[in-house]
Design a binder for these strands. Sequence first.
DNA 1: GCGACAG
DNA 2: ATCTTGTCGC
Length: 226
Amino acid sequence: MEVPPFPKPEGLEAAMALQRTLAQRVILSGSLEGKKRLAALDASHKRGKPLVAVALLYHLEKGPLFVAKGLVPEEALFPYVPGFLSFREAPAYLEALKALPEAPEVLLVDGQGIAHPRGLGIASHLGVHLDLPSIGVAKRLLFGRLEGPLPQEAGSAVRLLSPEGRPIGYAYRSRTGVKPLYVSPGHRVGLEEALAFVKRLPTRFRLPEPLRLAHLEAGRALAALD
DNA sequence: GCGACAG
DNA sequence: ATCTTGTCGC
């Protein structure tokens, strides 16, 4: 698919300013009805090696269709700073997306959507950059708090609230007894619609299958480098 | 000053 | 994310 160049900010000040600008372009409405082709994005990295990103094209009815990879040399990587993950990982994701035979209708990203200090987690950043609907699925919380207790039963969810009390996503129990996932809209999708979309993905273990497979592929690709 | 802190 | 030993549980 076609991918616009991704500007690299000089430092955290510039990165923060860019986040504030792009956050204004995030659209928090839209349904994903009828959208069946998604790209699941995950990355893997080891010191002294390039960052490996995987974009796994997945069809809701046909399953996995294609695995594309993107590499960024360690020397070229933005440092990891909580709140600035997209500047580190997005360039590798975009390389992987370039290698897809067709554009996905939805991006499913390992990380936050709008549940972020400035409203622009990596899922939102990629969604705005590519003008695609996107959803963030994170394994840990970065920003916000749960509205109440989250039941142990698979399928239960409670809203994620910003410090001001605005809903920014959900804590979601994908399987009974597992730690919750944190689902937040990235771009061009509503809060409830984002959760509904994730809920209808096949989930054998904690992570929805598309993301779990992307994670496995990224790990394999990293191990295969040497 | 203290705690929190995606991947 | 990775590193890292044993350990608990399905």
